[in-house]
Deep mutational scan, measured.
Amino acid sequence: MTTFKLIINGKTLKGEITIEAVDAAEAEKIFKQYANDNGIDGEWTYDDATKTFTVTE
Rank of each mutant, 00 (worst) to 15 (best):
N36D: 03
A21E: 02
G10N: 12
I7V: 06
E16N: 15
N38K: 12
F4V: 01
T50D: 03
L6W: 09
A49P: 13
I19Y: 12
D37W: 15
D37M: 14
M1K: 05
A24R: 12
M1N: 07
K29P: 14
T52H: 14
F53S: 01
Q33P: 04
I8P: 01
K5Y: 07
T45I: 07
K5R: 10
K51L: 07
N38S: 07
E16A: 11
A49Q: 11
G42V: 03
Y46D: 00
K32F: 09
V22H: 07
T45M: 15
T52I: 12
E28G: 15
D47F: 05
E57M: 11
I7R: 13
E43S: 07
A25K: 15
A21P: 00
I8W: 10
T56D: 03
I7Y: 12
K32C: 02
I19E: 06
I17S: 08
K5T: 07
G10E: 01
A25N: 12
N38H: 14
E57Y: 11
D41G: 11
K11Y: 12
G10H: 08
D47M: 04
A49K: 11
K11I: 04
L6T: 01
G39I: 13
E20W: 04
N38E: 06
D47Y: 10
E57D: 08
I17V: 11
Y34L: 04
G10P: 07
M1H: 15
M1C: 04
I40D: 01
I30K: 11
E20V: 09
V22F: 10
F4I: 01
A25G: 08
T45E: 15
G39H: 09
T52P: 00
I40T: 05
T56H: 10
I19P: 00
L6S: 01
G15P: 15
E26A: 15
G15W: 09
G15I: 10
I7L: 05
E57P: 09
K32A: 05
N38V: 02
A35F: 03
I17Q: 07
T18M: 08
A27V: 07
T52G: 05
K51H: 03
E26D: 14
T3A: 07
E28M: 13
N36W: 07
D47Q: 08
T3H: 11
A27P: 01
E26Q: 02
I40V: 05
K5F: 09
A25S: 15
K29L: 08
D23S: 06
D47C: 05
K32D: 12
T3M: 12
T2P: 02
F31R: 00
E26H: 13
I30P: 02
K29N: 05
M1V: 11
E20Q: 06
A35I: 04
E20D: 14
T2C: 02
I30M: 06
A21G: 02
T2V: 15
I8Y: 15
M1S: 13
T56Y: 10
A49E: 12
E28P: 00
Q33G: 15
G39E: 11
E16M: 10
M1G: 14
T45V: 10
A27G: 12
L13P: 02
G42F: 01
G10S: 09
D37Y: 14
T45A: 03
F53T: 02
K14T: 05
T50Q: 05
V55N: 02
L6A: 06
D23Q: 06
F4E: 00
M1Y: 15
I40Q: 08
A25I: 02
N36E: 09
L13Q: 14
T18I: 07
